[in-house]
């Protein structure tokens, strides 16, 4: 199993947000995580990627056979965990090219490989830019500075294509995207899908899942996965909303 989360509890400033979550992801799979606002979807992403301030009070996160709890965020990234951010930040004065080269070389250094030669790097950039239809000029600009919402999200997928992670977490990648941008992003993701990697797609709406078809859909509520199904579960949620899940969950938890 690529990722195996067992009985995970996560607290922020002493307040428990994730309350005993279990999730297993194999290579070649796409898992969708859905649920109403404030149920811990982004907290889950933060806990897997090792963001500071998210206190893991109980449980284990296994990735490629290693328990990664306590591992610094950059090592997790270099092990192959990638997060496509919901709100990518701007880094003024740092060109995308420089940023990407620094990231790629950090990864190669971690793997014991020499830095990527300049020519090879630029060729790789060209190739991956085409994948997500990123304007050539965008990579000369500072990281995310002055990018539109759509450009920021495309840029996340572009970085993912450059770094070739084995696990990619897409955090609300569809938020703020129009349908055309959504299709481009989904196309990029689908082209990167392989038997060697896996995706966790965090989303509010079923819309994105029309284009990135999941193998499993999980509903997150009150810090736990309360329902798991196939891609049809997403359609059901779209139709019926989350109320019935809430009711079902509360009914069982009262027993």
């Amino acid at each position: 199993m690529l990722l195996n989360i067992k009985n995970l509890h996560v607290a922020i400033n002493g307040k428990e947000i994730i309350k005993g979550l279990n999730l297993g992801v194999n290579k070649g799979e796409v898992h969708a995580i859905m649920g109403p606002n404030g149920t811990g979807k982004s907290t889950l992403a933060a806990a897997i990627t090792g963001r500071e301030g998210y206190e893991i009070t109980q449980g284990e996160i296994w990735f490629k056979g290693k328990n990664i709890i306590g591992m610094p965020a950059e090592e997790r990234a270099n092990e192959g965990i990638f997060l496509s951010f919901q709100y990518p930040v701007e880094i003024p004065g740092v060109s995308m090219t420089n940023f990407m080269r620094t990231a790629l070389n950090a990864q190669r250094e971690y793997q014991g490989l020499p830095s990527v030669p300049a020519g090879e790097f630029l060729k790789l950039m060209e190739e991956k830019k085409n994948l997500v239809e990123i304007h050539a000029k965008l990579t000369n600009r500072s990281v995310n500075e002055g990018f539109s919402g759509g450009e920021k999200k495309k840029n996340e997928i572009f970085q993912m294509a450059m770094l070739q992670p084995s696990l990619a977490i897409l955090d609300e990648t569809d938020s703020g995207l129009d349908i055309d941008a959504l299709k481009v992003v989904a196309k990029g993701v689908n082209e990167l899908r392989s038997d060697d990697n896996a995706f966790i797609v965090i989303t509010h709406y079923q819309r994105l899942l029309d284009f990135i078809v999941p193998d499993f859909v999980h509903v997150l509520f009150d810090g736990k996965i309360v329902k798991t199904g196939g891609k049809n579960l997403a359609l059901e949620l779209e139709e019926k909303g989350y109320e019935w899940i809430k009711e079902q969950y509360l009914a069982t938890s009262e027993l």
């Binding site: 500071e52 301030g53 610094p72 950059e74 990234a77 990638f82 880094i91 990231a103 971690y110 770094l163």
Partner: peptide, 14 residues
């Protein structure tokens, strides 16, 4: 910002 630092670290940059 913490956000900038985490963004870099998430890309493997210490």
């Amino acid at each position: 910002s913490e956000d900038q630092l985490f963004y870099c670290k998430q890309r493997g940059i210490d």
